[in-house]
């Protein structure tokens, strides 16, 4: 034992005294006083901070990037996403979700959905104050509350959003912004959507009471996030803001076929067409073409290839897995199986 008896005890006292006195002179949580007085003060969140997912739209909520390819639903480890693809009155499937539910009580905030999304449609939000007064229905986030603008995305994650914008070359729908101007954000929103990116931090200084602060926080997210939601879940026109034309017919014209060297082109490569029509268009073509026609025509790379590449791989026997076309679901799987069995490749 070194020193006199009790030396260790006295040294301990010295350390605690130093911390005690230091805590009164600590300057902004550097050293000795580490409390954030929540909810008046909040820790500034780093840019990468991730909590629950949200869906990004460019311009208006109708211009959401999500095409209901269901890759995120497949890859989500705890299976918290539920997607139902929308269809037009004739039953033709559309490239957007009718139902997109995320059960945030199941979501484990891993971010895998955002990583695998081929369209940069689903990204991770940083809002963690999501507690509700119920445990079941209240904790399921439905489509309207998940839709947040690209401006919001730039707001919370500027570097990442810039990178995403720079790499986004694929355009699935024409921007109806020409037809209907995006609604002007109100003054409160405009004040927040300033050029210098802010992080969600403490409420402004002139909001004083607890209730006002709480309301500000709730309003903050909802003002920025969803905007004036007009979601035509039915074809009935809801007369609030000018409606863009339903994008379905436009999608047919816009689906850019990949570089294909086949003579005769690929008329089936249109995700607006249903399976029967596509098979009809491809019926006299080679095995690879027919296989390609069976797929969902999204080039979403859910299978790991684009549609042409997957078809070629199947035809050449490189892969035998017919279950990879996630957007195509069972009908594609069955058709591929049938085709391959007929060709003796399965």
């Amino acid at each position: 034992m070194n020193g006199f008896p009790g030396k260790g005890l006295l040294e301990g006292l010295a350390v605690t005294a130093k911390n005690f006195i230091g805590s009164y002179f600590d300057d902004n949580r550097k050293e000795r006083l580490f409390t954030y007085q929540y909810p008046e003060e909040r820790m500034p969140l780093p840019e990468n901070s991730r909590t629950f997912p949200f869906l990004v739209y460019d311009g208006t909520p109708d211009q959401l990037r999500c095409t209901a390819c269901k890759v995120c639903e497949t890859e989500c480890p705890p299976q918290c996403i539920y997607i139902v693809r929308d269809s037009d009155p004739n039953g033709k499937p559309l490239q957007r979700p009718k139902v997109f539910d995320i059960d945030i009580s199941v979501c484990m905030q891993c971010g895998i959905c955002a990583e695998v999304c081929p369209f940069d449609a689903i990204k991770m939000d940083c809002d963690f104050e999501r507690s509700q007064h119920g445990r079941f229905e209240e904790l399921v986030a439905h489509l309207p509350s998940l839709l947040k603008s690209n401006d919001y995305y730039h707001h919370i994650k500027p570097t990442e959003a810039d990178r995403v914008d720079a790499t986004r070359k694929r355009v699935k729908k024409p921007s109806p912004a020409a037809a209907a101007p995006a609604p002007t954000p109100g003054p409160a929103v405009a004040a927040v959507l300033s050029p210098t990116p802010l992080k969600p931090m403490s409420p402004p200084a002139d909001i004083l009471t607890e209730d006002e602060k709480r309301a500000w926080l709730k309003g903050y997210q909802s003002i920025l996030g969803t905007g004036p939601i007009v979601w035509p879940l039915t074809t009935k026109k809801i007369a609030t803001t000018p409606q863009p034309p339903t994008p379905a017919p436009a999608a047919a014209a816009v689906a850019t076929p990949p570089a294909s060297s086949l003579a005769g082109g690929e008329p089936w490569h249109d995700s607006g067409l249903d399976l029967a029509k596509r098979m009809e268009l491809a019926k006299d073509r080679s095995l690879a073409d027919r296989l390609m026609a069976a797929m969902a025509q999204l080039d979403c790379q859910a299978c790991g290839y684009d549609c042409r590449g997957y078809a070629n791989a199947l035809a050449a026997g490189v892969t035998r897995d017919v279950t990879l076309c996630a957007p195509g679901e069972d009908e594609t799987k069955n058709t591929l199986e049938t085709l391959l069995k007929e060709a003796g490749k399965l």
Partner: peptide, 13 residues
């Protein structure tokens, strides 16, 4: 309060 300050936190406030 004193225990809190020793432990780098505020006490009840």
């Amino acid at each position: 309060k004193a225990l809190g300050r020793i432990q780098n936190r505020r006490g009840p406030n």
